[in-house]
Design a protein around this nucleic acid. Structure first.
Lengths: 341, 341
DNA sequence: CTGTTAGCGCTTTCAA
DNA sequence: TTGAAAGCGCTAACAG
């Protein structure tokens, strides 16, 4: 790779002059400029961003740290991030933590070393440590998707409480009284928030605490499968299942299929997170759909605000609305199912 | 962010000593080491990778340039890349080109400036330019998924010819004689390779050139929809559709649904690319499934070989086998459909 | 066992 | 309008 010095020699000028041509700074003679430009062309020279970054203390690079790019929800978030970053001539590094705080911490350390200008973080865990680590090193962070309790940090997420409330309310309106919620780990805010929304809807409908059926697991297909199996074994059996995310929904639907339980005739199913429209022919599942792309965009936009020094004193908690989409997977409970109420 | 100098001052030693502690190089007194380590701890110091990279001319960073991370196939490729890179303590930058050669070129230029150690490229177009650009700057490349004609470059991809042959053969064995292939742009090797495999199977079955129904479009859902509509309008109507990728398959299936054509009773459908198992309850589509994760892994592994100087003289063209999975979307043609042969 | 010097590629002063 | 020197943070090579 040619350096600025190589270009300078070839053009018969000093490195400084080349630099000026590159950055359009200061006065340059027309002829000199031409010579320099030719030399650049001939050598296929590209400036070394490392050296520039070392001086300017900015790398034009962001990092997106998430749990698993393979989850279509996060894929869409990533695309929103990348598009917004690209529009400002920033590049994005991506890191999968697989919900492991260790892996997350290792990545953050590397990213700090690489001097990324900012981090977009989907926390693996409800701990303030990663945030504190970054803040201690002066690296701006925006948290996506999940709340981090206690600590002050910019956050962009979906309104999980309200989304869960809507879905539960929808089931209640259809006549369901025994609704099981199959949810993720209790350490993650999306999980607890969705349970909170669910409980609120139940209580507004006049149901008691005893009517809540909360089953916690992980945000995985296998967990969804197992939770649904356990739900089916309950007496009385729930008439509706509320899946805490898309993976749990898929697992639950498979469990129901394997058990020969028809949806929605014998069991209604609703879910947080839609399935990607690019993989589904006939959308069937009643869902609350998160604005994944917008979350990526908005979070990145906020990060740029902070980088530009447009930092309001108070930290942001941007809560985007989820959209409920009613489809065929939810219907009225069967008549013969006795109300539990 | 604290520098090595700050640490040195705090520990009462020279920067060099700190460097030695950091890199475990040379002899260091136990007490000195301890002092330094304490200072590092207290300051939350992380070494500046930019400065190191400037010296060592290596950034421990790779770039993955692909068309659209939103396509589940590429998402899986990306995960394979990231896992392999992470295992060697490399970070990955990702870039979406949306099949635009301009966007691709802009990205490659930025990546060259950022001194990435290597590039994993899913070319937007069958042109040698991007490869030449990188090679001219001494940046190793491995091409994924698609062949680039003319030029010598390491490539890791699926056996599209054979995969297409298998799918077509499967349909022929079921008794289909009029099979339309709905495929992507002619400028992309996967597209032409799949058509080649399709033709080979037809000709082996004793069908003539006139029996081939090749319809080219784009690798998108809307294109799949339109192509299928056009295929339905043909006389005689094909008894089977071969979708060139997953997006085309989804589009085609929607067109069939909207036209009230049942699959597989009235029309068999097969596709290159499986749909992600994380979004499908009941896999239905007969497909040839590409080893997406392995492609990402293998390509990255090859890139590391090149980086390590283990570069054999001859360039690699690693062609991984695709796996055919027969499901319910393909069946025998209806009796009343007259053979065209 | 520890410190000094020099230089990776670039740009901000300050001079000419 | 152009150039020389100095320094961003780090480490190899060479003292001491």
């Amino acid at each position: 790779m040619a350096t600025i010095e190589d270009v300078a020699k070839r053009a018969g000028v000093s490195a400084m002059t080349v630099s000026r041509v590159l950055n359009n700074s200061g006065y340059i003679g027309a002829k000199t400029r031409e010579k320099v430009e030719r030399a650049i062309e001939e050598l296929g020279y590209v400036p070394n961003a490392l050296a520039r970054s070392l001086r300017f203390k900015t790398t034009h690079t962001l990092a997106l740290v998430l749990t698993d790019i393979t989850n279509s929800y996060f894929t869409t978030v990533a695309r929103g991030v990348e598009d917004m970053a690209n529009a400002r001539d920033f590049t994005v590094m991506f890191c999968n933590t697989d919900e492991s705080p260790d892996k997350e911490m290792k990545y953050l350390s590397v990213l700090a070393q690489k001097q990324v200008d900012g981090v977009l973080l989907v926390p693996a865990f409800s701990s303030p440590d990663p945030i504190l680590f970054l803040k201690a090193r002066g690296i701006p962070v925006v948290v996506l998707d999940r709340r981090i309790p206690v600590i002050e940090v910019d956050t962009v997420r979906t309104d999980s409480v309200r989304g869960a409330y809507q879905l539960t309310r929808h089931l209640l309106d259809l006549g369901h009284r025994r609704i099981a919620i199959l949810t993720g780990p209790v350490e993650i805010s999306t999980s607890t928030d969705r349970v909170a929304g669910y409980r609120r809807a139940l209580s507004e409908a006049g149901l008691s605490e005893a009517d809540a059926v909360v089953m916690g697991g992980a945000y995985t297909i296998s967990s969804g499968y197992q939770l649904a199996q356990r739900a089916l074994a309950l007496k009385p059996t729930p008439t509706a299942l509320f899946a805490g995310n898309n993976f749990i929904a898929i697992g639950a639907l498979r469990a129901l299929r394997d058990a020969g339980v028809r949806v929605p005739e014998e069991m209604s199913v609703v879910s947080f997170d839609d399935l990607p429209s690019t993989t589904v022919v006939d959308p069937f599942l009643t869902v609350v759909s998160q604005p994944a792309y917008a979350i990526g965009e908005q979070a990145t936009s906020r990060l740029f605000d902070v980088l530009a020094g447009r930092t309001p004193t108070t930290s942001l908690d941007l809560v985007l609305p989820a959209e409920m989409i009613v489809r065929q997977s939810s219907g009225a409970p069967r008549r013969e199912d006795p109300d539990t109420g």
